[in-house]
């Protein structure tokens, strides 16, 4: 008991002095659980996030666009892998995490349950969804858990390419034919509100926030980050000549921020509960990919085993 108290004191002292907690350090169970939940959800979001964009790889309007989109989707896979490996340092296995995703026990970002209907959605996703993700992720580079913070440094370096490529698609469409500009506006209309929802519930109703802030896993509240995102993005929409689909949106001279209309949280809750437009399709695609790859994993494992046996029998013969 006293030993536990010493350990807890040391943990609290580390947190208080902004030192990182590393994988083998003692940590409270609740801290470990919170991190496993957050990091694995984050990893799942990266992996499921490959699907809406993967949808347009074969239909990208040029070879250059196709190469760029491929590189971006490959990055999402990479981000998922960095994060899975960070979560594994906390004692959960990859199989357990994948199982939780495939059975619907684990959540991922609700944004990926919306369909990508036109090429402009590739622009809107990069610009808005990756933009919102960066807003969320930059503070995570300073998170108190070392392996997560280090993974996030890598992720953030790569995300800025994603956001720029999305903005460029929007810029080209906005400067294109009236039909192209209309397409960009339509994409903004559909992605704007779901992007704002990416920051999670309002602070008053966010159940994990307070403890996470205390543990320095989270550095800013959902509402703070959402406001920053709005403040950053509205001028960019103006530059594109597009209209943000919010009649209440206006600059507030007194606060120095944009005021924006209320978010439809019932939609958010529906999507999180599994009733978004694409929830079922996303999980079905993921499970199918996993199951169809099973023979490859088994064959590779069998080959590795056989090669190892052969190598050891050769050594013993020599």
């Amino acid at each position: 008991m006293t030993q536990e108290m010493d350990l807890n004191q040391r943990f609290e002292a580390y947190i208080a002095s902004d030192q990182k907690i590393e994988a083998k350090d003692w940590m409270p169970d609740a801290y470990r659980k919170t991190l496993i939940r957050q990091i694995s959800q984050h990893a799942h979001s990266e992996i499921i996030g490959m699907q809406p964009e993967g949808n347009w790889i074969t239909r990208a309007p040029s070879l250059k666009r196709k190469s760029i989109l491929l590189a971006k989707v490959q990055d999402e896979a990479g981000h998922g892998l960095y994060l899975y490996s960070a979560a594994e340092t906390l004692g959960i296995t990859r199989d357990e995490m994948l199982d939780a995703l495939h059975t619907g026990k684990a959540k991922y970002s609700s944004i990926f349950n919306y369909p990508t209907l036109t090429w402009a959605d590739m622009g809107a996703i990069g610009w808005l969804v990756d933009g919102a993700a960066i807003m969320n992720q930059v503070p995570l580079c300073k998170c108190s858990y070392g392996p997560y913070a280090r993974a996030m440094v890598r992720v953030c370096k790569e995300e800025s390419f994603h956001q720029r490529q999305g903005f460029q698609i929007m810029l080209n469409l906005s400067n294109g034919t009236p039909e192209q500009k209309e397409m960009a506006q339509d994409a903004l209309n559909r992605w704007w509100w779901p992007s704002l929802m990416m920051f999670g519930p309002n602070d008053a109703s966010s159940k994990h926030s307070e403890q996470s802030m205390r543990w320095k896993i989270k550095r800013f509240s959902n509402d703070e980050l959402r406001q920053r995102f709005v403040d950053m993005t509205v001028p960019q929409a103006e530059l594109l000549g597009l209209t943000v689909p919010d009649p209440d949106l206006k600059w507030n001279e007194a606060t120095g921020h944009y005021d924006f209309g209320p978010i439809d949280w019932s939609e958010f809750e529906q999507v999180v509960a599994g009733n978004g437009p694409c929830n079922r399709e996303r999980i079905e695609t993921r499970v199918a990919a996993h199951e169809n790859g099973a023979w490859v994993r088994d064959a590779a494992a069998a080959y590795a085993e056989k090669s190892a046996e052969r190598a050891s029998s050769q050594t013993s013969a020599a």
């Binding site: 490959q74 080959y303 590795a304």
Partner: peptide, 23 residues
Amino acid sequence: VGSLHAADATMAISNARDVYTRR
């Protein structure tokens, strides 16, 4: 730089190339 899963060392190297050295 991190970790990954692979069946053997050769695959680990080639996965590491894809996961950790894309740039």
